[in-house]
């Protein structure tokens, strides 16, 4: 998979993947398509090696005539089986190559964008956003927040039972603490006054 994939097979794999993503093709690939691809591939191979095979054509033709003529359906079936097998294999390989190619391409693109594009865009856009966009947004939104959002939040908070309970507990705690301190101070004052009274009369 590391060597560069043939463009045709890559395109085939991408087309099949796209067809499967769009649910135009099922999984696995239909046999008809595999046969067509196999036939096309075989035709391509045949054309590619036509010259080399030309010398043997006559002899092969004679042999074929001898072998096939008596059993033409078997030859056809073998041909179709081979074409289907070959087409299926080609499509599968094409799918894998297309997936790998897409993944590599996306990763490379994202890395490139992260390294080269995004920092530059952010650097260029930030002063513009801070100087022009943010003040406009704030000046446009703040009146709405003041008149609509803040009162709503305050109303929600004031109606929230937990907040009310918290405030009540805090208020009650402050009052209780102040009262207890007052009581302690008055008790100490009682003791001091009586001590002074006793000292005075003892003396």
């Amino acid at each position: 998979m590391n060597e560069r994939a043939p463009l045709g097979r890559l395109a085939l794999g991408a087309t099949v993947l796209a067809g499967q993503r769009l649910r135009l093709l099922g999984k696995p690939v239909p046999e008809t398509l595999a046969v067509l691809v196999g036939v096309a591939e075989r035709g391509r191979d045949t054309a590619r090696h036509a010259l080399r095979r030309a010398e043997d054509t006559a002899k092969k033709a004679r042999d074929t005539a001898k072998n096939v003529s008596p059993r033409p359906p078997k030859r056809v079936r073998e041909f179709l089986d081979e074409a289907r097998s070959r087409g299926t294999k080609t499509i599968r390989v094409g799918q894998l190559e297309a997936k790998g190619w897409f993944a590599r391409t996306m990763d490379d693109s994202i890395r490139w964008a992260e390294r080269n594009v995004i920092p530059r865009v952010v650097d260029d856009m930030t002063p513009h956003i801070v100087k022009n966009v943010v003040p406009k947004v704030i000046s446009g939104v703040m009146p709405q927040i003041r008149t609509q959002v803040v009162p709503m939040i305050i109303e929600d908070l004031s109606k929230d039972e937990r907040i009310r309970r918290l405030i009540a507990e805090q208020s009650h705690g402050i009052v209780t603490e102040a009262t207890e301190e007052l009581q302690e101070n008055s008790a100490r004052a009682d003791d001091r006054l009586e001590d002074s009274f006793r000292k005075l009369f003892k003396a």
Partner: peptide, 15 residues
């Protein structure tokens, strides 16, 4: 009677 359970003069007058 320091620490008494009874209220003293200051406390009672304040109340």
């Amino acid at each position: 009677m320091p620490g008494s359970d009874y209220a003293g003069l200051v406390t009672r007058m304040a109340a």
